[in-house]
Protein backbone atom coordinates (compact mmCIF):
# COMPACT_ATOMS: atom_id res chain seq x y z
CA UNK A 1 0.00 0.00 0.00
CA UNK A 2 2.78 2.41 0.87
CA UNK A 3 4.95 2.25 -2.23
CA UNK A 4 4.50 4.85 -4.91
CA UNK A 5 3.70 3.99 -8.47
CA UNK A 6 3.16 6.01 -11.60
CA UNK A 7 -0.31 5.96 -13.13
CA UNK A 8 -1.71 7.14 -16.45
CA UNK A 9 -5.28 8.36 -16.12
CA UNK A 10 -7.75 9.64 -18.70
CA UNK A 11 -10.49 12.10 -17.77
CA UNK A 12 -13.36 13.25 -19.99
CA UNK A 13 -14.86 16.63 -19.25
CA UNK A 14 -17.39 19.11 -20.53
CA UNK A 15 -15.70 21.66 -22.79
CA UNK A 16 -16.70 24.74 -20.79
CA UNK A 17 -14.74 27.84 -19.74
CA UNK A 18 -12.72 27.35 -16.59
CA UNK A 19 -12.82 23.55 -16.48
CA UNK A 20 -9.05 23.19 -16.79
CA UNK A 21 -8.73 25.74 -13.99
CA UNK A 22 -10.97 23.58 -11.79
CA UNK A 23 -8.83 20.52 -12.48
CA UNK A 24 -5.55 22.35 -11.91
CA UNK A 25 -6.95 23.99 -8.77
CA UNK A 26 -7.98 20.62 -7.39
CA UNK A 27 -4.54 19.11 -7.99
CA UNK A 28 -2.91 22.04 -6.22
CA UNK A 29 -5.35 22.20 -3.31
CA UNK A 30 -5.27 18.49 -2.58
CA UNK A 31 -1.50 18.43 -2.90
CA UNK A 32 -1.54 15.84 -5.68
CA UNK A 33 1.67 15.23 -7.54
CA UNK A 34 1.09 15.49 -11.30
CA UNK A 35 3.91 14.77 -13.74
CA UNK A 36 2.21 15.70 -16.98
CA UNK A 37 -1.15 16.80 -18.25
CA UNK A 38 -2.46 17.04 -21.80
CA UNK A 39 -5.88 18.23 -22.94
CA UNK A 40 -7.60 18.31 -26.31
CA UNK A 41 -10.79 17.51 -28.15
CA UNK A 42 -12.34 14.07 -28.02
CA UNK A 43 -14.49 12.37 -30.66
CA UNK A 44 -17.61 13.84 -29.02
CA UNK A 45 -18.36 17.53 -29.63
CA UNK A 46 -18.46 19.42 -26.33
CA UNK A 47 -16.35 16.85 -24.49
CA UNK A 48 -12.62 17.35 -23.95
CA UNK A 49 -10.25 14.60 -23.10
CA UNK A 50 -7.35 14.90 -20.69
CA UNK A 51 -4.53 12.47 -20.08
CA UNK A 52 -2.46 12.92 -16.96
CA UNK A 53 0.33 11.05 -15.30
CA UNK A 54 0.44 11.05 -11.52
CA UNK A 55 2.45 9.19 -8.96
CA UNK A 56 1.56 8.25 -5.43
CA UNK A 57 0.39 5.46 -3.20
CA UNK A 58 -2.68 3.45 -4.10
CA UNK A 59 -4.73 5.53 -1.68
CA UNK A 60 -3.48 8.82 -3.11
CA UNK A 61 -4.22 7.70 -6.65
CA UNK A 62 -7.71 6.65 -5.65
CA UNK A 63 -8.20 10.05 -3.99
CA UNK A 64 -7.08 11.84 -7.17
CA UNK A 65 -9.69 9.96 -9.17
CA UNK A 66 -12.60 10.25 -6.73
CA UNK A 67 -11.94 13.92 -6.02
CA UNK A 68 -11.65 14.65 -9.74
CA UNK A 69 -14.84 12.75 -10.41
CA UNK A 70 -16.62 15.02 -7.92
CA UNK A 71 -16.01 18.04 -10.16
CA UNK A 72 -19.37 18.65 -11.78
CA UNK A 73 -17.89 19.06 -15.28
CA UNK A 74 -15.90 15.81 -15.25
CA UNK A 75 -17.96 13.14 -16.99
CA UNK A 76 -15.72 10.07 -16.71
CA UNK A 77 -12.38 8.87 -15.38
CA UNK A 78 -10.36 5.84 -16.39
CA UNK A 79 -7.05 4.59 -15.04
CA UNK A 80 -5.37 2.84 -17.98
CA UNK A 81 -2.13 1.93 -16.20
CA UNK A 82 -2.90 -1.76 -15.94
CA UNK A 83 -4.75 -2.00 -19.22
CA UNK A 84 -3.41 -2.59 -22.71
CA UNK A 85 -3.05 1.00 -23.85
CA UNK A 86 -1.22 3.15 -26.34
CA UNK A 87 0.65 5.86 -24.48
CA UNK A 88 2.51 8.41 -26.58
CA UNK A 89 4.12 11.76 -26.30
CA UNK A 90 5.61 14.17 -28.81
CA UNK A 91 8.83 16.07 -28.36
CA UNK A 92 10.52 18.78 -30.44
CA UNK A 93 14.23 19.08 -29.73
CA UNK A 94 16.38 21.86 -31.20
CA UNK A 95 19.96 20.63 -31.38
CA UNK A 96 23.20 22.41 -32.21
CA UNK A 97 24.28 21.08 -35.56
CA UNK A 98 27.14 22.74 -37.41
CA UNK A 99 28.90 21.40 -40.45
CA UNK A 100 31.01 18.85 -38.60
CA UNK A 101 28.36 17.07 -36.52
CA UNK A 102 25.20 17.61 -38.56
CA UNK A 103 25.49 14.20 -40.14
CA UNK A 104 25.87 12.55 -36.73
CA UNK A 105 22.75 14.28 -35.40
CA UNK A 106 20.73 13.18 -38.43
CA UNK A 107 22.00 9.63 -38.03
CA UNK A 108 21.12 9.63 -34.32
CA UNK A 109 17.61 10.84 -35.10
CA UNK A 110 17.18 8.13 -37.74
CA UNK A 111 18.37 5.43 -35.36
CA UNK A 112 15.67 6.57 -32.95
CA UNK A 113 13.08 6.67 -35.71
CA UNK A 114 12.71 10.42 -35.16
CA UNK A 115 12.27 13.02 -37.90
CA UNK A 116 14.15 16.17 -38.78
CA UNK A 117 11.48 18.85 -39.15
CA UNK A 118 13.52 22.05 -39.39
CA UNK A 119 17.02 22.85 -40.58
CA UNK A 120 19.16 26.00 -40.25
CA UNK A 121 22.84 26.61 -40.79
CA UNK A 122 23.71 25.77 -37.20
CA UNK A 123 20.75 23.82 -35.80
CA UNK A 124 18.26 21.04 -36.45
CA UNK A 125 14.87 20.38 -34.91
CA UNK A 126 14.23 16.71 -34.21
CA UNK A 127 10.67 15.49 -33.72
CA UNK A 128 9.86 12.23 -32.02
CA UNK A 129 6.57 10.56 -31.19
CA UNK A 130 6.63 7.61 -28.89
CA UNK A 131 6.49 6.20 -25.40
CA UNK A 132 8.14 8.21 -22.68
CA UNK A 133 11.18 5.94 -22.42
CA UNK A 134 11.87 6.26 -26.17
CA UNK A 135 11.71 10.03 -25.92
CA UNK A 136 13.99 9.97 -22.88
CA UNK A 137 16.52 7.83 -24.71
CA UNK A 138 16.68 10.20 -27.68
CA UNK A 139 16.96 13.25 -25.44
CA UNK A 140 19.85 11.67 -23.55
CA UNK A 141 21.69 10.90 -26.76
CA UNK A 142 21.12 14.35 -28.22
CA UNK A 143 22.45 16.07 -25.09
CA UNK A 144 25.87 15.12 -26.30
CA UNK A 145 25.49 17.53 -29.26
CA UNK A 146 23.99 20.35 -27.20
CA UNK A 147 20.25 20.87 -26.85
CA UNK A 148 19.29 24.51 -27.46
CA UNK A 149 15.62 24.16 -26.69
CA UNK A 150 13.12 21.39 -26.05
CA UNK A 151 9.38 20.96 -25.67
CA UNK A 152 7.49 17.80 -24.66
CA UNK A 153 3.73 17.41 -24.72
CA UNK A 154 3.33 14.92 -21.91
CA UNK A 155 1.62 11.63 -22.47
CA UNK A 156 -1.64 11.02 -24.28
CA UNK A 157 -3.26 7.62 -23.89
CA UNK A 158 -5.87 5.41 -25.48
CA UNK A 159 -6.77 1.84 -24.61
CA UNK A 160 -6.20 -0.74 -27.33
CA UNK A 161 -9.20 -2.43 -28.88
CA UNK A 162 -9.79 -5.88 -27.50
CA UNK A 163 -8.32 -8.57 -29.74
CA UNK A 164 -11.12 -10.25 -31.61
CA UNK A 165 -11.34 -14.01 -32.02
CA UNK A 166 -11.56 -15.58 -35.46
CA UNK A 167 -15.27 -16.24 -34.91
CA UNK A 168 -15.93 -12.59 -34.18
CA UNK A 169 -14.20 -11.55 -37.39
CA UNK A 170 -16.48 -13.74 -39.47
CA UNK A 171 -16.21 -17.18 -41.05
CA UNK A 172 -13.82 -16.21 -43.82
CA UNK A 173 -11.35 -14.86 -41.29
CA UNK A 174 -11.21 -11.38 -42.81
CA UNK A 175 -12.23 -8.10 -41.31
CA UNK A 176 -14.74 -7.17 -44.02
Amino acid sequence: MKFNSKHTIIAWMEDKPGVLNRVAGLFRRRNFNIESLTVGHSETPGISRMTFVASGSQRELSQIQTQLDKLINITRIQDVTDEPALVRELALIKVEATGENRHEVVQMAELHRAEIVDVTIDSLVVQIVGREDRVNALVENLRHFGIIEMVRTGAVAMTRSRLKTVEEFGSNGTNQ
Binding site: S62, Q63, T66, Q67, D69, K70
Partner: peptide, 11 residues
Protein backbone atom coordinates in the same frame (compact mmCIF):
# COMPACT_ATOMS: atom_id res chain seq x y z
CA UNK B 1 -22.67 9.36 -0.19
CA UNK B 2 -19.32 10.83 -1.25
CA UNK B 3 -16.93 8.27 -2.78
CA UNK B 4 -14.01 10.63 -2.17
CA UNK B 5 -14.49 10.25 1.60
CA UNK B 6 -13.65 6.55 1.36
CA UNK B 7 -10.10 6.11 2.53
CA UNK B 8 -9.36 9.84 2.50
CA UNK B 9 -8.13 9.81 6.10
CA UNK B 10 -8.30 6.21 7.27
CA UNK B 11 -8.05 2.77 5.77
Amino acid sequence: IDPAEMGKNLT
